[in-house]
Design a protein around this nucleic acid. Structure first.
Lengths: 232, 232
DNA sequence: CGAATTATCAATCCAAAGATGTAGGACAAA
DNA sequence: TTTGTCCTACATCTTTGGATTGATAATTCG
């Protein structure tokens, strides 16, 4: 067993050269991380990431040339196990949300104390995900808001509640693209029975055909409630 | 201007009477909150919430009788501005995620130090959302995971890209539940033309009927890319 | 220009879906 | 026991949907 663990390697990407230099100094002097590269270009950064395989990348996400979020996404897609911490000047909830959604392991404001940056790196290096408390609160406000509308919709009268258990089973199979024969086979009942159920479903959901029934089901939280209004 | 702010009022809901008593004592003795009610029943709790309008509710979400999450949802639906903190014995990522999704303003483990509970209440009373750091990390792992699959899918070959502009228009109308006649009317073309397009769509998407085509479209980011695999 | 793609329309045929009415048995609530 | 709901099933009929073939005009592209 090794007694010491390898010093974690860090890559810095920030279009602001001054800030880049400052962060490099900070890390070099006051932490146990090795800076393996610095660049002001997101594209170059991605290439450096492939080349040097750092453990951590500090990525400024407010860059004019190339979107930092996109860069994070590309790095995540490489699937090299590189953990990216987003650096930003803004505590904008939407930015935080998007960064975390695409896989950032942390989000730190440039205005925060340098100790906090080091701490974030420590946490992330340890495999955790780190968000400063203030930003976490911001994130959750945004997060919960994005579901509020949805909740409102689904708390309106939902015609799905009128369906019997059996009808729900049938509808479930409909939402998987099955036809009458297939449903009959899966439920071990005759095709005509399925037709009866499906017709009853149409009546209850006030639709004219199976496609509309399926759409109603999906849009009103049937079974796999996977709809959210979240988009990157 | 008032110099002192009103002491915040708290309602406790926990099916475990012992724990309930313990928490009540803790809050009464060691915090500045008024316990306005305690109950072991989620249903009664909801009624007490309506009656006493507490500022905060501590809600055990691991109750056999009635699901605590559901109770939170109902309280949120009341829209009385009551801020609910979920209490749980488990740091299960899925539980945490669902609690936060439906609007819990905090999530605290029963095993945590009592000081942490008080702190959480302070934060929540101040209008923030509070999650212990360890649970935040858990939450984000789950959160990011739920988007990983999606990213993977959308980066795989998407048969939708083979569709022509006109076919996309037709498919769009299909995903709105239109039949041939309706689509023909909306695009000012004959029904047979629509049939041709639809058949070509089937070929390209490798499906057998319109329902499957619609499902493929929705699951592969057609138009409204709002699908995520998150479920309550 | 010539070739390929696309959008349009038609005829035909068969299969599937949808509408409607009827009915027996199981089961639970009143 | 009666009433009602639910699940099952069938017959019949109409409409819609889907497959196939073929054809014309417009557009795009090399």
């Amino acid at each position: 067993m090794r007694e010491f663990k390898r010093r974690s390697r860090v890559l810095l990407i920030d279009d602001n050269a001054d800030h880049l230099r400052g962060v490099k100094e900070l890390i070099t002097l006051e932490s146990c991380y090795d800076v393996v590269g610095t660049t002001t270009s997101a594209n170059i950064g991605i290439n450096l990431a492939k080349k040097y395989r750092p453990d951590i990348i500090l990525m400024d996400i407010n860059m004019p040339e190339k979107d930092g979020l996109q860069a994070i996404q590309e790095i995540e897609k490489l699937d090299l196990g590189i953990r990216v911490i987003a650096l930003s000047g803004y505590d904008d909830a939407d930015l935080i949300f998007r960064a975390m959604k695409i896989g950032a392991k942390g989000y730190v404001l440039k205005t925060m104390a340098s100790a906090q940056l080091i701490y974030a790196m420590d946490e992330v290096a340890a495999g955790k995900i780190y968000l400063p408390t203030a930003l976490t609160s911001r994130f959750f406000e945004y997060f919960q808001n994005s579901f509020k509308e949805e909740t409102k919709i689904s708390s309106e009268e939902n015609l799905l509640t009128y369906l019997t258990a059996r009808e729900e089973e049938v509808l479930d199979l409909l939402t998987q693209g099955n036809n009458y024969k297939s449903i009959a086979g899966k439920l071990f009942i005759s095709e005509t029975t399925v037709k009866t159920h499906v017709n009853n479903i149409f009546q209850k959901l006030q639709v004219n055909d199976r496609t509309q029934a399926v759409l109603y089901a999906l849009n009103n939280g049937f079974a796999n409630r996977r709809l959210s209004k979240i988009a990157v």
